[in-house]
Design a protein around this nucleic acid. Structure first.
Length: 291
DNA sequence: GCCCAGGAGAAGG
DNA sequence: CCTTCTCATGGG
């Protein structure tokens, strides 16, 4: 059987780096190859992406479902002026100059809401390495295979219906720990209203979507913040995890448990771009291992 | 073998 | 409202 592969070349991209974007901790399904390209599953497609820095050209080879160029321009958030955002942030706080330098090519991805929700439920009290592994195993067991012609098999993220049909015992060999029941409950809840309705929270107001998400078992402020930012594309999302706490203490002397002051600083210094600022900060703290 | 991780729920104050 | 305990697991 031959596998159809579609190729997109998106040109004239500035203020972008595939590496920074895919390795800053916002997504878990991409793996780098020895040529600097990245292969990963997006929805029901497998893509291999390569970004040529000198030309500013992003090349995407897609197999499986054909989503079209527009989809990837949105997925990688290529139409937003990140140069302007970075200037805005540095202008408000000079300390952001060095912070941004560590991940100046970061874009906020527009990922599938359901996959983002489950992924960040898994992320709680967990390591990125193991989160990636768990999501891979979950997809291999309960997701649909995507034929992409490569020797390595790829699987779509499981449908809500599939996960909703499981009992906790069915997830035991994936070793999700205490999170397995959260995942099944979340899937049931999304399945109950329908995935399309769930996606519509993208267009609702921030506070409504936030409190809706926090109503899920296993979803608190931090996980909700990640889903708002990476899944619902809301720049007002400001997830605060251990790394964010450390970097906020380092930069502004905020006490590690004083989440409220951190929120206040984010509004005052980062304004409407606090979501992007958060990702620069998180990336900086991780890469520099600020303790 | 120990510490920790993109935390959150539950119980008790 | 707040504090403390507990929850599984494996990477480093």
């Amino acid at each position: 059987m031959t596998v159809k592969t579609v190729k997109y070349e998106i040109e004239n991209i500035t203020d972008f780096s595939l590496k920074d974007t895919l390795e800053c901790g916002q997504c878990f399904r991409f793996y780098e190859d020895d040529k600097g390209g990245y292969t990963g599953v997006v929805g029901k497609s497998v893509i291999r992406a390569f970004f040529c820095e000198e030309e500013g050209t992003l090349v995407i080879e897609e197999s499986g479902e054909e989503k079209g160029r527009e989809f990837y321009e949105e997925y990688f958030d290529l139409k937003r002026d990140y140069g302007k955002i970075k200037k805005y942030l540095i202008n408000k706080d000079k300390k952001m100059k060095e912070v941004i330098e560590y991940g100046k090519g970061i874009h906020i991805l527009k990922q599938e809401p359901f996959e983002t929700l489950i992924s960040f439920i898994i992320s709680q009290n967990n390591h990125i390495k193991r989160i990636k592994k768990s999501i891979k195993m979950l997809s291999e067991e309960f997701g649909e295979e995507i034929k992409d012609g490569s020797t390595e098999k790829h699987y779509a993220f499981p449908e809500p219906k599939k996960l909703a049909s499981l009992a906790v015992g069915d997830l035991s060999d994936i070793k999700l720990g205490y999170r397995d029941k959260y995942i099944i409950e979340a899937a049931k809840r999304v399945e109950a209203i329908g995935e399309e309705e769930f996606k519509k929270y993208r267009d609702k107001c921030f506070t409504e979507t936030k409190s809706y998400l926090e109503g899920f078992l296993g979803v608190g402020e931090k996980v909700a913040g990640c889903v708002l930012l990476f899944g619902f594309n809301m720049m007002a999302g400001f997830p605060i995890d251990v790394w964010m706490k450390r970097i906020m203490r380092e930069l502004y002397g905020v006490s590690i448990e004083d989440r409220k002051t951190m929120e206040e600083i984010s509004i005052k210094l980062y304004g409407k771009y606090k979501g992007v600022a958060q990702q620069y900060l998180f990336n900086y703290a991780m890469k520099k291992k600020i303790m």
